[in-house]
Design a protein around this nucleic acid. Structure first.
Lengths: 216, 216
DNA sequence: GTCTATAGGAGGATAGAC
DNA sequence: GTCTATCCTCCTATAGAC
């Protein structure tokens, strides 16, 4: 943290140590998010995290004080990415394109970050007890902003009169389902696992139905 | 199981014993489904189930051999109720009413059986490893049947050309979200918990957008 | 059918050698 | 920074008195 020029100059060797730390922490978090997503906080064993990240159990404790610390780090990290997809919903855009882009972005996220999405879903099933008040408020504020954009579109006659919050929930639900309930989707589509084309089919269907359903 | 007339006649006192068993098993299952929904199979402790069902831990073992047995019973029971909402989707009905009724029924289920829904969601996050091949096939068959109905509607020009499976997933996702992600819905709607009116608002929004989105 | 007591093992976390 | 050995708690499951 406090690293003055002298030390920095003397020891260029400081970098490799930090690289080890970075690599190991990343391995732990990657293993942990996957296990937490599947089995939740109480269901996940530190030994499993250690095994999956190919580190001895004691090393996991070296990098993270407790299981809670790992979990909290993941929650924090997840929320940083929360807002990204919503950024398509901007007042200066036409609803048709903005909504279509949002759906596409959210489905891409479901495909590429399925594990993170499931981790969050699991935390929600738990009741969201690990979410701090600040984090809840953050979600609300981000949502409120975008709800206003939708409200404006409606006022300008660019969108049919729909409840903006429930409308957002519809978008969320329809797109996140392909991550959180990928298993159900796979069973329904009669596949061993979802394919890339399933996501594009999903996008077409959702965009079509939603746009036709909400445009004037 | 084998209970001849003689025994039945001699002992009317057999009923109360069975009533105790029925009551206790029900208490255990009710407590268990709630805990499994929140913390999953590995995260749930038998002691918690015992405490929540107000029975000594050993009694839980008296009624169910293992934790697996409780879980399997719940899965079985859940699947029996799986098909109910889908029954609105019948070939002899007009799509407009059938789909609106389906959405309403599914949202009612989300409100009244939120715990069961979450239990299933948790099992899906786990990867659905407790679902037997037969159970998976059952889901597929039921879905396939209803997909055919939708396909027919499309052929008859009563419904716009949409991918029936992804269309179903949209309905499922949008309605189940209010059970599985009730926490997210509550945060979005800025409520401590979902109210009855939230479900009717949801119904209106979903029915409106979906019907307009899929009717010709 | 109810419950206490406990076996036997696993889990979270730590000490301390290397 | 790495890892073995270990503490102590808590868990599933069972034995056996009432």
């Amino acid at each position: 943290m406090t690293q003055d020029r002298a030390t920095a100059g003397r020891k260029t060797a400081k970098a490799p140590e930090e690289r080890i730390r970075a690599r190991n922490e990343a391995a732990i978090l990657k293993a942990a998010v996957n296990l937490f997503a599947q089995k939740g906080f109480d269901g996940t064993r530190i030994a499993e995290i250690a095994k999956a990240s190919k580190l001895p159990k004691a090393n996991v404790y070296y990098y993270f004080e407790t299981k809670e610390a790992i979990y909290a780090t993941l929650i924090e990290r997840l929320l940083a990415g929360w807002d990204i997809a919503l950024e398509h919903i901007r007042a200066d855009r036409e609803p048709r394109e903005a909504i279509a882009d949002y759906i596409a972005a959210k489905l891409d996220y479901s495909r590429q970050n399925a594990v993170e999405s499931r981790f969050f879903a699991n935390e929600m099933l738990r009741g969201g007890g690990f979410l701090s008040r600040t984090q809840r408020r953050h979600i609300q504020e981000v949502t409120r902003e975008r709800v206003e954009v939708v409200d404006n579109w409606i006022r300008e006659g660019k969108l049919r009169k729909v409840d903006p919050k429930h409308f957002f929930i519809m978008l969320w639900a329809s797109t996140q389902f392909y991550a959180d309930s990928a298993e159900v989707a796979a069973i329904t589509l009669e596949r061993p696992a979802l394919r890339r084309t399933d996501y594009t089919d999903a996008r077409e269907t959702i965009v079509e139905v939603i746009l036709r359903g909400c445009l004037p």
